[in-house]
Amino acid sequence: ELTQEQMGLLQYVMDSHLKHRLPQSLATRLILQDDMGSDDNFVFLTEMATRHVQILVEFTKKLPGFQTLDHEDQIALLKGSAVEAMFLRSAELFNRKLLERHTDILEERIRKSGISHDYINPMFNFYKSVGELKMVEEEYALLTAVVILTPDRQYLKDKESVEKLQETFLHILEKICKRHHPDNPQHFARLLGRLTELRTFSHHHADMLMSWRMN
């Protein structure tokens, strides 16, 4: 059972998660738009990524405790986590029921975007492995919070405060995992395992953009 305080925090995070997500209209535009030239595609996906970051910042600002952190530490956390959080949210979008019938088109469009398949294949494998976990929305929201509040980001000064904040959300996430997946005691550990996978995307992201530009 969640404590009264944990229930309040979860409600707060969920409200923010549901409010600050990539608008369905934008996602549909990406998927259903007629064939675009590769330049248009580049500009469009860049705009989409920018919007992703803006929405992520709005979500993060409302995470209980975040605003009490030093301003430069806030930037260090967001800068360190934006790519990982973006891939996590993309995985949620990819696996969301509403998009199920469009995922083949989406996959084809991304595969044709000019990004090297060396980068694309692990991305889709990640989306699919996340899909197999059958995560509920609370888990996506809390895992995003855990990703953002990672205490070992570069340039972060007050690691201790961030660690405390992250632990708060990890405890709630563990309870939510047990509640929604009572037959799978490994579920919480598996979610955390996906975070390791996310880190590799973050490392490869700059290379991926460079290869895309070159193409």
């Binding site: 920018t50 970051v53 803006q54 929405i55 910042v57 709005e58 600002k61 806030q74 967001l78 934006a82």
Partner: peptide, 21 residues
């Protein structure tokens, strides 16, 4: 254009402003 902004610029602007609208 957004494509010319770096990640840190986007984050700094978003932290100061409000993109809810």
């Amino acid at each position: 254009p957004a494509s010319n902004l770096g990640l840190e610029d986007i984050i700094r602007k978003a932290l100061m402003g409000n993109f809810d609208d």
